[in-house]
Amino acid sequence: MAFTNENLAVAQEILARYPKPKSAILPLAHLAQDQDGYLTQDAMREIAELVGVTPAEVLGTTSFYTMFKRDPVGRLVVSVCTNVTCLVLGGPEVLEHLERRYAGDTEVTIEEVECLAACGNAPAMQVNYEFHESLTPEGAAEIVDAYKRGELTARGVSGGQVGGGA
């Protein structure tokens, strides 16, 4: 299945923003991924049609970007940074702990990512692109569990950091 009727209307609105339709590939791919959880082949075909390119070009473009998943992922995508600040402040340990703990859990997909621009409170991770910072391995797992239980939902948790840990 490709876009729902509502999302097709959103897609038209997105297309109208750009002087050239091909520019809409990324926003449309985000829209499709938000809808289906990952970027399905049907969606890429439909995007190709909407912007007037071949499906190969849509795949060529989208496969360049790490945020687009081409296979199904868990309901919760947990992105753990291990780049150089998180590296020395415990990021790899958080990653390892989560990977072990959620191995085989189809609801949770753990991935290692590059610097998330949260180094002021390293180590950091995102759950469905929601920031969580100053983590410990156990603390990170508690956060993921809270999402699993529905106590946390993605949106507006962190306010971005200022100096001094404020």
């Binding site: 082949q41 390119v53 071949t54 190969a56 496969s63």
Partner: peptide, 20 residues
């Protein structure tokens, strides 16, 4: 344009769309 590059960096390769 039925072939393009897919992926990036060291993984970059020529692709076609599946079944296309």
């Amino acid at each position: 344009p039925l072939i393009d590059f897919g992926e990036r960096g060291g993984q970059m390769q020529v692709i076609t769309y599946p079944d296309d």
